[in-house]
Design a protein around this nucleic acid. Structure first.
Lengths: 147, 147
DNA sequence: TATTGTTATACTCTATAACTATA
DNA sequence: TATAGTTATAGAGTATAACAATA
């Protein structure tokens, strides 16, 4: 096996991980009646607190129209509410309902549990090395995308 | 920073990588007028050779209907053709056009280049450790999903 | 004038169900 | 009877463009 093949295989592992993780998360989200995109919005909302749709569109890097649709769906299914913005009458503030806040919390808790599942039994040295390598990779992709 | 937080952060790195890679690949594919799903089909076709739609549906784990749509689109844009199956008159064989074969080849070549970009300057010890850790993680997710 | 969010329209991916042709 | 693929229908995510209300 050449050096190039070994690196190609390593990238293959990463791509496989992407596929597996995406599937696993989608299944998990479906249990709450949620999709990837809606969870992404919920995640952002949990980290930013009540936000205008404009802020969410910028954070998720999607169109304003798209946010309208996602918020419509999340309002209809009881995860968030639209409230008038206190000072800007053009804008709306998206906030969690009780149900939405509870789901956001359990998503965060389950992410920690999942991290424990993945890394809990990994030797410290391997974990440290993995984190360093991963950081380097993320860094390199970031630079590549700036071009 | 607690141990749990460090593991959570490491999972965060993985999830960030998923987002970055997905975006980077989508941009790359758009240059050829392709989408993720269509590239996925092309990739499978490159590895299996001319295939029935049924075989592609099983490989991609999507519905037969979905394959009809993807093949329609790839035929319309000149990447693949539908040929009659030599022995089963119900089935069609999907094969590359010249354009499709060329794109498949350049995708494979570029994947190797990308692997080189990610790992080319990484010290051998770190690369080896990364591959081991990654294998362990993929293995663990696989087991988790079987439940 | 610029910005926020909506309506109008359209494309892609995805699914299930009913159906045709063939095995 | 079972299988390969299509038509019919539907829902989700995404985008651009035109528009209303407000800043």
């Amino acid at each position: 096996m050449t050096d190039i093949d070994r690196k190609d295989a390593a990238l293959g592992l990463i791509l496989e991980l992407v596929v597996l993780l995406s599937r696993d998360m989608a299944e998990r989200f479906a249990r709450d009646g949620l999709t990837d995109s809606r969870v992404h919005l919920i995640w952002e909302l949990a980290h930013r607190g009540p936000s205008t749709q404009r802020a969410l569109a910028d954070a998720l890097q999607v169109s304003a129209r798209n946010i309208t649709g996602l918020v419509d769906a999340l309002v209809a299914t009881g995860f968030v509410t639209r409230e008038p913005h206190p000072t800007d009458r053009r804008a709306t503030l998206v906030s969690f309902t009780k149900k939405g806040a509870a789901v956001a919390e359990s998503l965060q808790r389950e992410q920690k549990e999942f991290a424990q599942l993945l890394f809990g039994q990994m030797p410290t040295a391997q974990f440290d090395c993995f984190v360093d390598a991963m950081s380097a990779i993320v860094e390199r992709i970031r630079k590549e995308m700036e071009k």
